[in-house]
Amino acid sequence: MLPRRAWLAGGAVIAALPAITRAETPWPAQPIRLVVPFAPGGTTDLAARLVAQGLGARLGQPVIVENKPGAGSTLGAAQVAQAAPDGLTLVVSNIASHAIAPSLYRDLRYHPLRDFTHVALLIETPSVFVANPQFAPRGLGEVVRLSREQPRGLDVASSGSGSSNHLLIVQFGQVTGARVNHVPYRGAGPAMTDVIADVVPMMSDSLPSASGHLRGGAVRGMAVASAARHPGFPALPTFREQGVDLVSNSWFGISGPAGLPPAVIGRLNREINAVLAEPATQRRFAELGGLVSPLSPAAYAEFIAGEVARWAPIVQASGAKVE
């Protein structure tokens, strides 16, 4: 199905060569494994597969996506952190594994910065508040007012405890003083079902997973947590426009184990950003509801460091904790 035989042949030849000759062959001499730390089918998986295709064509070696789901995407990240830094094993680093998990899990097996070489940011997708069409408030101000009137707060659903969508709800409560009662679900799908069925009036979701329902009118968009309005949803106001100073994007990029050779980092970053610049990729990513954001390796590492620092107090406040 995939050119596995070519890989086998290549692998056998390379293994037979002495180490010195191997060092002389230009990277990448073998196919690259890209570990996606989520189950197949999600936004991250899809975007990673799209990038893997383009990247493989540019590098002249296939980039093979390998799903390694589990433990809030930390299992796959931990595996790559321990891999050899030869540029042949990469991981899709993301907000869960590299920004939230360090504060959420007490004994994480890796350090989000020290154990990785961060190569390139792929995509940022904003969070949105969506509500059942029957939900009375029209804007966030009315939501806050309504939530204060209710004795035990307003129910707001999310895709799970400790997810970035959950943390946005926490932040929303902190910033506006709204009284919210967080209702966690096992994934965005079941939560969306209950919003459509009006079991819960409102939910915090990521734009890619909510966009179909928004376009179909099954739910009404309340606010998008990006800095500017999203081009795909020009009518959807941002949090800031409604007087709530919140920007919350989910993001993911590509990283490798600590100590990748600088040549490899540079080449990878160049090729990835070239794939991102292709119109086909731009269009697909826009359909997914995300924004392409090319960064240099150093800028991506800095970005992650900022995210780790930013989420730590919010995770504390959320009360979500995983031992």
Binding site: R4, L8, G11, E66
Partner: peptide, 14 residues
């Protein structure tokens, strides 16, 4: 050949 599951086939492949 068919399913192409992600494992090493021969010793020390990765």
């Amino acid at each position: 050949k068919q399913l192409d599951i992600r494992v090493a086939v021969w010793p020390m492949q990765y």
